[in-house]
Design a protein around this nucleic acid. Structure first.
Lengths: 267, 267
DNA sequence: CCCCAGGCAAGAGCAGTGCTCGCATTTGTG
DNA sequence: CACAAATGCGAGCACTGCTCTTGCCTGGGG
């Protein structure tokens, strides 16, 4: 729009652009506050406007629509969650793979428990008319990228996940089919230069584990564990520990899963 | 309300009560249709009223609030899903445990794929102000009851799920802790006379598997598998098959997991 | 230092929502 | 058959997302 020739687009120089950016952030912050308290479905653009002392129509100067505001929120939350998981995993001792796995898993749950509304926005029922734009998919993959990195490293150290169930007569055909199953994920990874050479079974098992972790957190936050599991924190640790074992993540590398040592899951 | 002395409460005799019940069902059916097309968040009582040729306020003669209508929908959907899973499992040959497991799992996914709006209502983000009343929890457990029945039977036939990862020094303390983890679930089961004597690890693994199945379906329906997995049907089967193996569900009983035969997962 | 274009906020308005209340009308029961 | 209860309607309240017009007011080029 402005800056016809020289000014760098990413760096607003004029006072007006500065103010604009500040207000844009203020609106986003107010929206996050509402999101945290009321949940995504109840996120009202008018209420956000009131919180920042504006009339609703004024907000449209900064976000084209409710969906645009939603997209900004989604990207911010994916990045926050991804950063939390990355940091937790990075802080664990490098040679203790189970600890790294558990740290990443716990960071996921801790963030979700601390931000249930945001979690619901990211992983709950999609907003009816809303379709997530492309720029959300990359931040969305940060968590699973951490997980697969740990699994791939465990694999490189000689561990192997629980083998895929052999299929009666045609075992090899099955193995090929499995590779095709996760071809999309592998392509995606290769496109940004990570773990494109991971064994198929490791990819499959990691995707399964990620799904199970999500399911566990989702059940806890959405109330499907009420009455069955009381200590949800310990329950989550138990799940994460078993998943690690199924993935062949052991403390000492180079062993089979039978005689290997499992992560310590005390809290 | 009426029937002060003799008429059975559950069996309306008067024509008026008959008509009332019919209209009540008609409203519920219209709401389900809207739910299927627009999703739970967009479920509008006014739109439902229009569909049945009423004005919105008239609906309140039959359902006290939108939440009451929601509750009726939830119960109906839980029952429909539960019945579908029960039927599928019952139709599989009794001695083929993997087939029974896979049939139950597929019935779950098939129903969810056929009814994404309903699935979102049951397992997606809870409606903001809404708190599910007690009478929804029993129908909600029908699916997991089928799953645990299969696992318990496999256990009785001598199979064992993948063992829990031993915890370094204090293995027994861990085992006791695990039992406490799922004490709620066991209590719940005991209260209605089912599987109260199932081994702790079987209960834990079943709950984990149920969570993983939910997560898989949820990821598929909510678009978190786009780009990673293309053939979601085969992916689901692969997940269900691996979960069965982890649960110790094999075709021939009494074997260890290493030399056992796995389910055939061709589609 | 001036001045005005353009960014910006306000407000009215539209179509929709859940829900309440008073009134008329039907209905079928005793 | 008469009367009360059950029922449907419509207006109205407070709210939502979003559009469009109006007018202020200020940033920054001349």
């Amino acid at each position: 729009m402005s800056d016809p020739h020289d000014a760098p687009v990413g760096t607003p120089r004029t006072a007006r652009a500065l103010a604009r950016e500040a207000i844009t952030r203020e609106i986003l912050a107010a929206a996050r506050a509402r999101l945290a308290t009321d949940g995504p479905a109840a996120l009202s653009l008018r209420a956000v406007a009131r919180d920042v002392g504006m009339v609703s129509s004024a907000v449209y100067r900064y976000y084209a629509s409710r969906d645009a505001l939603l997209t900004a929120l989604i990207v911010e939350c994916y990045d926050e969650l991804g950063a939390a998981v990355e940091r937790a995993e990075a802080d664990a001792p490098r040679d203790d793979l189970p600890a790294r796995w558990l740290a990443a898993c716990r960071a996921l749950r801790d963030w979700a428990v601390a931000h249930p509304g945001e979690f619901a926005l990211l992983y709950g029922t999609p907003v009816p008319g809303y379709a997530a734009p492309r720029r959300t998919v990359d931040p969305a993959t940060r968590v699973v990228r951490v997980l697969i990195a740990v699994v791939v490293e465990a694999d490189a150290r000689g561990s192997r996940p629980v083998p895929a169930p052999a299929d009666g007569d045609a075992g090899d055909a099955r193995a090929e089919g499995d590779a095709a199953l996760v071809a999309g994920a592998r392509e995606f990874a290769a496109a940004r230069g990570l773990a494109h050479d991971a064994p198929t079974e490791a990819v499959v098992r990691t995707l399964m584990a990620w799904t199970a972790l999500f399911g566990t957190v989702s059940f806890e936050l959405f109330g499907h564990l009420v009455g069955s599991v009381t200590d949800t924190g310990r329950w989550f640790d138990a799940v994460a520990g078993r998943l690690a074992a199924d993935l062949g993540i052991h403390r000492s590398a180079g062993r089979g899963r039978a005689e290997a040592t499992a992560p310590s899951v005390g809290r």
